[in-house]
Write a protein that binds this DNA or RNA. Structure first.
Length: 563
RNA sequence: UGGGGCGUAGCCAAGCGGCAAGGCAGGGGCCUUUGGAGCCUCCAUUCGUAGGUUCGAAUCCUACCGCCCCAGCCA
């Protein structure tokens, strides 16, 4: 046993290194993390990275991860989002147990700490308007100038702040600011606003409050209340860390959490911005937050991506501090990898072409045994009816087929998967020259898909018995954005939307076993891809979403030939 | 021209002074009742650039270049 090599399955990244070192050196007695979404939108794949990180670290170090809603801005937050977020985190496979918290649970304590700061001469009520405060803040290169209200007495500040709470003042007329340093190079130190007046009902506290703490004043203190040891957030909060620490240092908080930042996830052909996602929904570019094209967890769930694939993806991409854009193909790989192992195989024909087996007895039906998943023999077999008239995929026949086309063509023999070898003998066309039917013969000795003489057709096709096939609607999805970097080079993001991201096929067929599919379960349609029954399915009228295609080297060959 | 970060292959990412992990993508081959899957194999003499320290540098020092974030009473 090589004692120098750690097991490769052990996850490692700079945050886990810090956690391990803190534990080893006794800086912390245990690990406590939290996932802190703001309930102002749906969770997306970028949040999944954070969820996997926070819950993952907690479980690896026998610690705990709280789910805490950062609900400090009632003008943007809604109950619908609260509910969806909880469902999404559970779906992803994580559980916070009893530890569901809200920043709003701490409003009273936060208020007391604001009063404490005032008492220390470290916070003051400012009567300046928002515009005036901005003007006083200075710029990136010039220091700010102090507010004329900066040096009010503690008594006056206490009185004013109390009256802010009771609702005596209108929105925007006054704020409470921390008194730090208007000349700091870090703009977050230029007397940040820590309380604002908002006469808005809060989803949880109703109209109990008309003043609300800002993120900076709420987040670190909430962490301290919960005993969070490692407060993990994204890079854009780096500049806030000194302020985070300032509050922890200047308030009588019960613990001293520390903040660590990592690079947020970016994905090609995708936008992960709540603002843009909201607009895609509100302006009708997609059908809703759970549209299968959306990068939201509810969207990819409806699309058929398994949670395990998302978790694998999170492990695959790692955690670092460098800005990066992950190719969406990596996500798709993780999803295919899981689905290949777990998805049951089924037959479906998206674009049907009729085939008549001339030497197969009319009215006869044979039940063919078909494997549910060749990757998993324990999944067993199922019966699929075979008869004289079949559907095959239109793309699986070519009248003038090149040598490399390993499918059906006049005179060529192919295998119908788990059924028989058939040979095309005649092409039937309508008045306009369109192929409407194929006449074939079958070899009765090849039942099950293999020949006694060992001959092996180059191609194997999927098929359906026309009399038994179940009509289905199948929705094909592709990347929502055509450009790998939507909105780059000054383009309007919305001009980069892929016009072909959704196409609905209404004249498809699936095998009888799929007549009443379980919604949310992803199966593989052999040779086509992975598909997931949509909630829009009705009894006997199933609707499937294409999760992902199978890798298609034939398509690649064709593309190379064309170019 | 202020402050904070980051630069290792097409993409993600290990590496922490001893001679460039791994994954994705891609190439070649084998195998195959899914042109799927699987298996084998190739893919950075070089770590943003230039100097310096050292027997030895992606790792240390210096300078430069490039990219990202910050001027909400958003988070």
């Amino acid at each position: 046993m090589d004692t120098h090599t750690a097991p490769t399955s052990e996850k490692s990244d700079f945050i886990r290194d810090i956690v391990a070192a803190d534990l080893r050196d006794g800086r912390v007695g245990g690990v406590m993390t939290r996932f802190p979404p703001e309930p102002n939108g749906y969770l997306h794949i970028g949040h999944a990275k954070s969820i996997c990180l926070n819950f993952g670290i907690a479980s690896e170090y026998s610690g705990r991860c709280n789910l805490r809603f950062d609900d400090t801005n009632p003008v943007k937050e809604e109950q619908e989002y609260l509910d969806a977020i909880k469902a999404d985190v559970h779906w992803l496979g994580f559980d916070w147990g009893e530890h569901l918290y809200y920043a709003s649970d701490y409003f009273e304590q936060l208020y007391d700490w604001a009063v404490y700061l005032i008492g220390q001469g470290k916070a003051y009520v400012d009567d300046l308007s928002a515009d005036e405060i901005r003007e006083h803040r200075g710029t990136l290169t010039e220091p700010g100038v102090e507010s004329p209200w900066r040096n009010r007495s503690a008594e006056e500040n206490l009185d004013l702040f109390a009256r802010m709470r009771t609702g005596e003042f209108s929105d925007g007329s006054r704020v409470l600011r921390a008194k730090i340093d208007m000349a700091s190079g870090n703009i977050n130190f230029r007397d940040p606003v820590i309380y604002r007046i908002l006469h808005v009902a809060h989803p949880r506290t109703g109209d109990a409050w008309c003043i609300y703490p800002s993120y900076d004043f709420a987040h670190g203190q909430s962490d301290a209340i919960e005993g969070i040891t490692h407060s993990i957030c994204t890079l854009e909060f780096q500049d806030h860390r000194p302020l985070y620490d300032w509050f922890i240092d200047n308030l009588p908080v019960p613990s001293t959490p520390h903040q660590y930042e990592f690079a947020r996830l970016n994905l090609t052909h995708t936008v992960l911005s709540k603002r843009v996602l909201l607009r895609l929904v509100n302006d009708g570019y997609v059908h809703g937050w759970d549209d299968p094209r959306m990068p939201t967890l509810s969207g990819i769930r409806r699309r058929g991506f398994p949670a395990e694939g998302i978790r694998d993806f999170a492990d695959m991409i790692g955690v670092a501090r460098a800005d990066s854009v992950v190719e969406v193909g990596m996500l798709e790989h993780a999803v295919r990898d899981v689905l290949n192992r777990t998805a049951s195989r089924r037959f479906a024909v998206l674009n049907p072409l009729k085939v008549v087996i001339e030497n197969f007895p009319e009215g006869q039906v044979e039940e063919m045994d078909v494997m549910n998943n060749p990757e998993d023999p324990s999944s067993g077999t199922r019966k699929v009816p075979f008869s004289r008239e079949l559907w095959i995929e239109r793309e699986d026949f070519m009248e003038d087929a090149p040598k490399k086309f390993f499918r059906l063509a006049p005179g060529r023999e192919v295998r119908l998967r788990s059924a028989y070898f058939v040979t095309c003998t005649e092409v039937v066309k309508d008045g306009s020259g369109e192929i409407v039917e194929l006449r074939c013969t079958y070899d009765p000795a090849t039942r099950g898909g293999s020949a006694p003489d060992e001959r092996r057709p180059k191609g194997t096709l999927h098929w359906l018995s026309a009399a038994h096939a179940v009509p289905a609607e199948i929705r094909l999805y592709d990347h929502l954005f055509a450009s790998p970097f939507p909105g780059s080079d000054g383009r309007d993001l919305f001009d980069d939307l892929n016009p072909d991201s959704e196409s609905v096929l209404s004249e498809c067929f699936v095998e009888p076993a799929l007549e009443n599919p379980v919604v949310g379960v992803t199966v593989q349609f052999e040779r086509l891809g992975y598909f997931c029954a949509d909630p829009d399915s009705a009894s006997g009228a199933p609707v499937f979403n294409r999760t992902l295609t199978l890798k298609d080297t034939w398509a690649k060959v064709q593309a190379q030939a064309t170019s």
